[in-house]
Amino acid sequence: MAVLDKKKSKVSDKVPSSSMADIAFLLLIFFLVTTTFPKDKGLAIVLPEEGGEVQVSAQNILHIIIQPNGLVEVKRGDSQQVQVVAARDIEGIWRQDVSENDNLIAAVKTHPQAPYRFMVDVLDALHTAGAERISLQLFEG
């Protein structure tokens, strides 16, 4: 059977390269889908518009005065009574006071020489307590 001997082997000795492009695209799409870029994160706040000053009843204001050493003085409305607390205690104070007065506004007054992080600590406590009416001011006097 000389004719049978002439037939070549059907198995190719080459690495199949036609599917390589598919593999490359598969990898490309996989990485495209799984890549996430770090999102900006922080404490969002809306600043008042210029000239948009609103008169607020003194009873609805919770004065939070941040000292350069990080201690926080809390004054309610127009009473002269001062309570000195740590920044983290603001959370509980806000929760308690807002349950008594729905229209409460947190007036955060920071001493000009106080480090920024103390203001962030107080803002953090207010955000954690769910406060939305926050006014950021500079402490004068």
Partner: peptide, 18 residues
């Protein structure tokens, strides 16, 4: 903040780490 208010920008984020 006063500069931003003067520019009319009201939405501000204090960037922080968790």
């Amino acid at each position: 903040q006063k500069q931003l208010v003067a520019a009319g920008v009201v939405r501000v984020v204090f960037a922080t780490e968790l």
